[in-house]
Design a protein around this nucleic acid. Structure first.
Lengths: 303, 303
DNA sequence: CGAATAGTGTCTATCAGACAATATAAT
DNA sequence: ATTATATTGTCTGATAGACACTATTCG
């Protein structure tokens, strides 16, 4: 941090040091701040036909609340930011305490600052996204005293409306979220409203329905999925969800589950080619032609 | 907001209502939260040769601090978030009070949560970016009692270093920022460190030098410019910086000033074509061939 | 005419979508 | 042989970079 280092006197005739000594931070009421974590991973679905490849599913880690408010409902792992830890540190601490994992990809997403977000008190929450390869890394969700569980996440745009306004246009999108863990089923409906007025665009996220999802976490989840979907297209974050060795089909499946649409294999392989490197290993016992295993080839190894 | 609506009792035997009634928000110390504004605009430079087009420059609005800390230095307009206003409202309020403008494009950028950001007390700040067309809209910077001024902003990457680590690589980028308003000249150096360790990437922003720029605002500015540069490539936000009618050359110049590189006119015109619509008007008295005036054609008018 | 900008045409390289075709294991 | 996946080849259409060329105004 740059030092302010000023010896000049302010309008009350105080030096900076004197000013800071008499500064009372307590005069104004302050909101609480939390860091909330969207921890994503990819898991294989149970498979009936031994010859077919197992389907992938996107999973999100949630914690059952043991206290009011929203007691019994499921929430994103998160907690209040302490006075002596940075926002990133609070997020990393939360990640560590819920998954036991330390060196994990993590990224700040958005800060939610509406007034009535929490019935207890004014809370401003910054959401983070973390990506975990649960097939290699041992994630101890559910082993903890806390009731943390992986939920299969389905995200789908159910309705899109376009309304013309006198000076622009409004696009409304209704997104349905479904989360499942064994027989626990949660769901939420989030409306995303984009308003175009001349050149000015505004986006508004609103929770229309929330079944078993605590607070306004349904819209944090929706926002996170949108971000994951867009960032997977132009960055290398997918590889955080993959084991060190993987087949190109598996990688394509991960893209397909996250984007929720099918991709053409030849185009996919061409596009991903510069970011992967073939190994001498192959899959075995698959009931069909074996597949070559690849590893991630980071951009900085390029040339 | 979804209601929690639970009648169940917690471990102390309290209903939700009872729990909320006895909840004391004051037990934990809480940080202050501010919303800080990067207000950008484009202005014409003074021109010597009457036949040449005026050059454009990117301008940023700063306010001179009249109080400790960083008294006399220049800061982003910003202020504490009140208990009864949302984060967005606080940002909009700040924008309105500094520029007198109301209906302006505004977007949340990032939340800065390091512990020692402010010598007074723990402060977490969310930065926003606003884009203004100062040629049409009357912006009252400097007319206010407050010392708000438009500064010409220069942003340039001065050094890039690539270090190989045992398990990855580190990319360091040194960015120089220069801000000028008449004979006031401010500058800052920000180091952006990208660490690649396997698939995990982390980005770290650090202020190395700060001449006349208050707090850690130099890195907020750097982050804002980076975001502006990238978003101008894949969204329509430029048009927030343009008057209702403009020439394609002027639009290209705005792209060039923001991206800090020259573009080829034919390629530019092709790319921008679907987003603009020709009018019957032309520029006049230019000392050369007149140029046709265009207007923004929003995506939603497409078909 | 010359200076300066406005605007068009075209060649090429690259890349994504589409789909055909071939390869190879397990049973 | 059949099934299911793996992998390659190729055609086509869209698009960006590069650059040559033409147009139009003022002085």
């Amino acid at each position: 941090m740059p030092k302010s280092q000023s010896n000049s006197l302010n309008h009350q005739g105080l030096t900076e040091q004197q000013f800071l000594d008499q500064y009372d931070a307590g005069v104004y009421e302050r909101p609480s701040v939390t860091a909330d974590m969207l921890i994503f991973t990819i898991m294989d679905q149970e498979q009936d036909n031994y010859r077919k490849l197992p389907e992938k599913s996107l999973q999100l880690l949630l914690i059952q609340r043991g206290e009011h408010p929203f007691m019994g409902q499921w929430a994103l792992p998160g907690g209040f930011v302490g006075m002596k830890e940075s926002l990133d540190e609070a997020a990393a601490r939360e990640l560590r305490s819920e998954t036991g994992l330390n060196e994990i990809y993590m990224e700040q997403l958005y800060t939610w600052g509406e007034v009535e977000r929490d019935p207890r008190t004014r809370v401003i929450s910054t959401s983070y996204m973390a990506l975990v390869d649960s097939s290699t890394q041992q994630v101890r969700a559910g082993e903890d005293a806390q009731d943390a569980r992986w939920f299969e996440l389905n995200y789908r745009v159910m309705q899109e409306t376009k309304t013309h306004l006198p000076e622009g246009c409004r696009l409304e999108k209704e997104v349905h979220i479904r989360l499942r863990h064994q027989d626990i089923e949660l769901s939420g409906v989030v409306k995303v409203t984009r308003t175009y007025c001349g050149t000015i665009t505004g986006v508004h996220w609103e929770v229309l329905q929330s079944e078993g999802i605590a607070f306004d976490h349904a819209k944090m989840i929706a926002y996170g999925v949108e971000r994951l979907r867009s960032k997977i297209e132009y960055t290398d974050i997918v590889f955080n969800l993959m084991p060190p060795l993987f087949t190109l089909s598996a990688l394509q499946q991960v893209y397909e589950t996250i984007l929720d649409r099918e991709l053409l294999a030849p185009a996919f392989r061409r596009k991903i080619a510069p970011r992967v490197m073939a190994t001498n290993e192959y899959t075995r016992d698959a009931g069909h032609r074996p597949s070559q295993l690849y590893r991630f080839r980071p951009e900085w190894e390029d040339a």
